[in-house]
Write a protein that binds this DNA or RNA. Structure first.
Lengths: 343, 343
DNA sequence: GTTATGATTGAGAGCGCTCCCAACAACGCG
DNA sequence: CGCGTTGTTGGGAGCGCTCTCAATCATAAC
């Protein structure tokens, strides 16, 4: 016993409508050179027969699948727990859907996943890919380079710096803005909770903090004291803040490299009896819509808009798919301070 | 200027290896009837040429794509904010990846999305689909029924009850377990924060609560007083709890229809100065790994395992794809109480 | 009436792959 | 030595679609 193989083909529709396969194809694809009569007959036939075109056959000849891969090169449990990443996914989904492309979501965690990802992207399943590979040691970007379908990276492409299309935020400037703001408001001992230093964005945020303070005349050994690394999670941010408070009880401000960590830092400060922003000013990074405003006090933070990033990435990808000769380059998006209550 | 069309085909590989296309195909697909010599030549040729098979061509003849759609029939911003849904996605991704299938994630929000979803699933982009459509009024399940590729529903399939493959949890029993537990521990005024009643699961949890209390002799008008509806969010749970406290300050227990709402209820109880579980016992639903244990006190809750659900769904789908004649039916998964600190 | 023009149309090739089938060599057996 | 058998191979058809090209027809122009 076999399943129903009664799936109608274009040929069936054409026969039913009393025209040729070519005409049926034209009618269904909106070619203007079809008589109204033929068009109507074909449309009706397609409806009556429950016809839907075979995508495999179509993309075999058009060389388009209508799908775009979105690759998050991180363990999936991490991605889905991170509000910033999920909002990237969301924007990507919406942006692509509006352009008529389907998002094919992939996580890439570990060696065999790299091979699987490469095979998938190179196998013609998708027209192109949007790739987020924040870790410096990630082998994926390099593995992706020789592939046929165009790839646009969101944020740093592992340790690749040339020959790739990148849409990134100006993390260092963001950190500078935050620190300058704190300095301008009279803060004198500005600590930082940095992100994991195996991620380029986290490094840039840290170096922005360091450079700005150095330029303002702060001692570099002093700075070492005022920095703690955490892992972009709430608990990590909290623990890092605890360590900072233990080592430098005199700190009066902290620049935290993500909103989620800032939430943790806020909690640590609260538990330690420090008032925010009275005793300690806190500036976050991301400006996550739900998170930043929900905190108490609402978080002053560096605003970056993942939807913007995704929009640029999609635009670049579409241009590439349209055959426009775009030279691989790194587009850097501005970030800006969003002042709320915490600093 | 065109892009590089130098993508090698199987024909190229065969020529390079000095064999026929058939032999090359066999070699690459692991057919045993190939001489070692031919196999090695083909493998080497494929490697040297950077060959990767054209999936469109392959799936045109095999009628398999190696991709499975995962449809979440809810606005994407809602899905990605809900820890329960994200853990479903995660399980689905992992489960499918392990079976060599790619997850194609789709959200389905509103009318035009229904059409788009149907078109995509029916167009042969995927071999089958896992669909989550919790809302009773959702038109998607009905629209999906006439489709060719097999579909397995996770949780209720809109308002469809027959002719569909469903893997669901026993929500009513879960509520019963929770209420019986509370009764057994001497609670006498057991309220509930119900989920949105346009979702079947939420209705079953509410009716489980009601039936159990009725069976225990509680007055049904009294029960109306003890129920509040919320929207499965933290803030909603908090507000509902506030309303309950205002109306029935004498309540000594509450069954909350989701962990996230329970977190909100806990906050409301805390703000109202009630001790948990001393004054008010709280039982949640979901047993979300991160959420339930992180609360203070740790949440006593009804345990359901989304990974289990997804595993059953995938198993059913694979059986369907293998042509096994499975009769559409509703598989109900057991839930059980997980006792922690809050009750 | 004849020819140019434009709008429609159908035939056919071919996208890159899998799979069926026939061909063939090499082998052992009666 | 002829036969079937086994293992291996290449040819060819065909999956369902798009797209080019030439044919057809009606209409307008001369």
């Amino acid at each position: 016993m076999v399943t129903q193989n009664d799936r109608p083909t274009l040929e069936d529709v054409a026969a039913f409508a009393g025209v040729s396969r070519s005409t049926a194809s034209r009618a269904l694809n909106g070619d203007p050179n079809v008589s109204r009569q033929a068009r109507e007959a074909v449309t009706a036939a397609a409806r009556d027969l429950g016809y839907s075109p075979n995508q495999a056959a179509r993309s075999l000849v058009t060389r388009r699948t209508g799908a775009v891969g979105v690759v998050l090169s991180e363990p999936e449990e991490l991605v889905l727990a991170d509000p910033y990443r999920t909002s990237v996914m969301r924007s990507a989904y919406r942006e692509l859907a509006d352009l008529g492309s389907q998002m094919v979501l992939m996580f890439c965690d570990g060696r065999e996943d790299v091979a699987r990802t490469v095979r998938f992207l190179d196998g013609g399943h998708v027209d192109g890919a949007l790739v987020f590979a924040p870790h410096r040691a990630d082998p994926l970007p390099r593995a992706l380079r020789p592939l046929r379908p165009p790839v646009v990276f969101g944020g740093p492409a592992g340790n690749l710096s040339r020959g790739v299309h990148v849409v990134d935020f100006d993390n260092e400037s963001g950190a500078r803005l935050a620190v300058e703001y704190l300095l301008r408001h009279g803060r004198e001992r500005i600590a930082t909770v940095a992100g994991p230093q195996d991620q380029t964005a986290a490094r840039h945020r840290l170096s922005g903090w360091r450079k700005t303070l150095s330029a303002a005349g702060f001692d570099s050994t002093d700075l070492t004291d005022l920095a703690e690394e955490a892992d972009f999670t709430l608990d990590g941010g909290r623990a890092a803040m605890d360590r900072l408070l233990a080592r430098r009880p005199d700190l009066d401000a902290v620049f935290v490299a993500s909103d989620l960590m800032a939430a943790g830092a806020l909690r640590a400060l609260h538990d330690a009896g420090r008032r925010v922003p009275g005793d300690v000013a806190v500036v976050g990074f991301d400006d996550h819509p739900a998170l930043a405003t929900a905190m108490n006090p609402p978080l002053t933070t560096v605003h970056q808009n993942p939807a913007d990033q995704v929009r640029h990435m999609v635009a670049t990808l579409m241009a590439l798919l349209a055959g426009e000769p775009i030279r691989p380059h790194r587009k850097v998006l501005e970030v800006l301070m969003k002042v709320r209550g915490s600093a």
